[in-house]
Simulated scan of single mutants.
Amino acid sequence: MAAATTRRHAVTVLAVSGYQTIAVEQSGPVARITLNRPEAANGMNAALTAELADAAAGLDRPDVKVVVVTGSGRFFCAGGDLKEFASAEHRGRHLKGVADNLHRAISTFARMDAVVITAVNGTAAGAGFSLAVTGDLVLAAESASFTMAYTRVGLSPDGSSSYYLPRLIGIARTKQLMLTNRTLSAQEALSWGLLTEVVADDHLAARADELADQMAATAAGSNGGVKALLLGSFANGLEEQMELEGRLIAARAETAEGREGVDAFLAKRPPKF
């Protein structure tokens, strides 16, 4: 990482160099990944998904407590880069590689202790829609829109959408989105349960920073525990899930964060995580 000249809350912003299709920076415990192909609507090509997977792995560290994912320009992400796919000698093999790297990134985001905030600044289509709703907290600008768009070009969903969407909105609505390619406005997506919050376009970045700072003050291990428990909840029976809860809360009680949290509560002071 190389130190940049800008500062956020008096903390030096460190920019990660070497990426061509994304921009990565870290300010204290908060990291930001920006999909950075505005000339191509931040479309996912082989380079972008490979870099996204690499960045996710690189940020899966104890000092990173929040990861914000957003897009540059007017789009969050318009989905896969169809021009690149069409030019590939072996389309299926090429597309499988692109999807594999996107899936590696999403898997890392889902399992890292850091809270992942997706800040959807514009259209999220196809894999962009899929990525958007994987955030632990999902913010969207008022002008953002969401559409699956896969079957429109004869393809099928990827990017974990067939896992997350049924859990978020149920099978019937998932089929409607995937089969009819209905476009949802940000307010519709919020009412369906796909988003955490909708904010004015010109306030999205500030609200993402505000929420990131709020999460950065919390216990990373506890946040990771929440994510791990919820990720497995649909696959486990009641007793298995409760056993996992019991074991995890006992383990958390022995950690420095657990001790500090309890001690701070009893002392009636803010915890220092």
Rank of each mutant, 00 (worst) to 15 (best):
M1E: 02
M1K: 01
A2G: 15
H9N: 12
V11E: 04
T12F: 02
V13D: 11
L14D: 04
T21I: 08
T21A: 10
I22M: 10
I22F: 09
A23T: 14
A31V: 03
R32A: 11
T34G: 11
T34W: 08
L35Y: 06
P38G: 07
M44G: 06
M44R: 08
A46V: 14
L48I: 09
T49I: 12
A50R: 09
E51T: 05
L52M: 09
D54H: 09
A55G: 01
A55N: 00
A56G: 07
G58P: 00
L59P: 00
D60V: 11
R61C: 02
R61E: 00
D63V: 03
V66N: 02
V69E: 03
V69Q: 01
T70A: 07
A78R: 09
D81C: 04
L82G: 08
E84R: 08
A86N: 14
A86H: 15
A88T: 09
H94G: 14
H94D: 11
L95Q: 04
V98A: 06
A99W: 14
N101R: 11
H103V: 04
R104G: 05
A105W: 02
I106E: 00
S107G: 05
A110F: 12
R111N: 13
V115S: 06
I117H: 06
A119P: 03
G122F: 13
T123D: 10
A125L: 01
F129V: 07
S130A: 12
L137G: 10
E142K: 12
E142R: 15
A144K: 01
A149G: 03
Y150D: 08
G154N: 06
L155F: 09
S156W: 06
P157W: 04
P157R: 15
G159F: 05
Y163Q: 10
P166G: 15
T174V: 13
T174P: 05
K175I: 14
K175T: 15
M178N: 13
M178I: 14
T180A: 07
N181K: 02
L184R: 04
A186S: 13
A186M: 13
Q187H: 15
A189M: 13
L190M: 08
L190K: 12
S191K: 15
W192E: 10
T196M: 02
E197M: 14
V198R: 13
V199F: 07
A200D: 15
D201N: 15
D202T: 12
D202K: 14
A205E: 05
D209M: 02
E210W: 07
E210Q: 11
L211M: 15
A216L: 03
A219T: 12
N223M: 03
A228V: 08
A228T: 13
L230D: 13
L230H: 08
G237W: 00
E239H: 01
Q241H: 12
G246S: 00
R247K: 09
L248K: 04
A251G: 08
R252T: 14
A253M: 07
E254P: 03
T255E: 02
A256L: 10
R259G: 05
A264T: 03
A264H: 05
P270S: 00
